[in-house]
Design a protein around this nucleic acid. Structure first.
Length: 416
RNA sequence: GGAGGGAUGGCCGAGCGGUCAAUGGCAGCAGACUGUAAAUCUGCCGACUUAUGUCUACGAAGGUUCGAAUCCUUCUCCCUCCA
């Protein structure tokens, strides 16, 4: 029944990972015949990746699960240059120490999704600083630079868009695609890597690598891009009120992560289950059929599965349990954001607006006041009308005060 | 090097001496409706213990004026054209 010979391509296509491929049949045949080593590059611009990177990470995960060998390439070198793709402005230059620290931090997330090691199918973690840092300008220009034409480079979207929008593009950034192309060839030399995956915005960069490989290594390299995942309402994934949806628990708690997925658009559920969970397709097909409010069951599965992958069973179950208690019983779950205060803090009474601000439900005192005035605040599940209400330790029930901003954002204050 | 144009709140984008914390749109938050969904409608949306109050803010620094985001000078950065 499979349309493709290899499990890899069959899986990636049926789950919605394919956007463009340089030679799908060729890659399919190669993957069916033996182990293909493929990589995806990640820039180290922050100490954590975010949901926007998840498609790529899942693609690597499927590579490994279908018997191929994935490489996660950390852009220790390229991050110093900055990828102009899809950006109007240059990124601020980052120093080595920050980049190294980011790489160390990001590496932890990969351990959740991939098995690293030295076996034939173990994933490899590479860092392009290992070769890019050592490049010598003149030799590099002569060996690599001569294979790139300015004519061609100017037609690349990343460059063209910048120019069309009259935004400056520095020579530094202009070199990014050359370095990325070189990465591909270098990974081919070092690890026999013949495939580069990436987001659809990386197509141009990937092509450059494929062509460079053909010219200087006489290798047939493959490029494969994943679609840019947007929500049904057209927004890029991963933006919430509090900022990006980070993969690192310290930046974005497992409970918040669970809630992020739990609140997915109806129209996105099936697609997300395929892309972001390991669930078998027939199971997903069953969940997709749920209509009306029943689709909430599918959303719970989506939230639980995605959270399990990233944070593990225990954290996922805790998050699900907290959500269940909070939303289905109107109670209090352990995973809700919590602040600790002492009875002494309450000795003189704390105004309600101040407590909301302290609990993180409002960014400023004024915002807390507006929230209460607007009728969106609850104290122990009772609507709060008086923003100046003086709250004392006696407000606590079993040592805990529950604050709510709207229906979804809750926090608890522990009075100890 | 020369000539023009531009820099406004998270973003886009009006304003061009007072009535400007600054029109409008987007994003965001809340309310209603619901299913912890979408769409829609409504309110809010610089900070300050909230005030017909104060402070901070229209690239930076000075200046003119009773009064400046708006005028002048210098500076910084960006864009376009010419060399």
């Amino acid at each position: 029944m499979a349309a493709y010979k290899s499990e890899l391509i069959e899986t990636l296509t049926s789950r919605g990972f394919l956007h463009q491929c340089t030679n799908l049949e060729g890659l399919d045949a190669k993957a069916a015949a033996g182990v293909v080593t493929g990589y995806i590059g990640f820039d180290a611009t922050a100490d954590s990746l975010h949901v926007g990177h998840l498609v790529q990470i899942m693609a690597l995960r499927w590579m490994q699960k279908t018997g191929q060998r994935p490489i996660a390439l950390m852009g220790g070198g390229t991050t110093k240059v900055g990828d102009p793709s899809g950006k109007d402005e240059s990124r601020r230059l980052m120093d080595d120490a920050t980049i190294m620290a980011n790489i160390t931090s990001i590496r932890q997330s990969f351990d959740r999704f991939l098995t690293f090691g030295s076996g034939p199918q173990d994933a490899i973690l590479a860092n392009n600083a290992d070769w890019l840092d050592k490049l010598q300008y003149i030799p590099f220009l002569r060996d690599i630079g001569r294979h790139f034409t300015i004519n061609r480079m100017l037609t690349m979207d990343s460059v063209k868009l910048r120019l069309e929008r009259e935004q400056p593009l520095t020579f530094l950034e202009f070199n990014y695609m050359i370095l990325q192309g070189y990465d591909f060839v270098e990974l081919h030399r070092r690890h026999g890597c013949t495939l580069q995956l990436g987001g659809s915005d990386q197509w141009g960069n990937i092509i450059q690598g494929v062509e460079l490989g053909r010219r200087i290594a006489e290798a047939e390299l493959f490029g494969f891009t994943c679609p840019l995942i947007t929500t049904a309402s057209g927004a890029k994934m991963g933006k919430t009120a509090s900022g990006a949806v980070w993969l690192k628990a310290e930046r974005f708690s497992p409970y918040d992560y669970y809630q992020y997925w739990r609140n997915s658009d109806d129209a996105d559920v099936g697609r997300f289950l395929k892309l972001f969970t390991d669930l078998p397709l027939d199971e997903i097909a069953r969940l997709e059929k749920l209509a009306g409010s029943e689709i909430n069951e599918a959303k719970k599965v989506l939230a639980l599965e995605t959270t399990r992958l990233l944070h593990g069973d225990a954290a996922a179950n805790d998050a699900a349990e907290t959500a269940r208690k909070t939303f289905e019983q109107g109670g209090i779950g352990d995973d809700l954001p919590t602040i600790d205060m002492t009875a002494a803090d309450f000795a003189a009474g704390i105004p309600a607006w101040s407590l909301f601000q302290k609990a993180g439900l409002a960014d400023s005192n004024g915002e807390a006041r507006r929230l209460i005035r607007g009728g969106g605040a609850k104290l122990n599940d009772q609507k709060l009308d008086d923003e100046n209400l003086s709250i004392t330790a006696s407000t606590a029930v079993n040592g805990v005060i529950k604050l709510s901003a709207g229906k979804k954002r809750h926090a608890i204050v522990k009075v100890g």
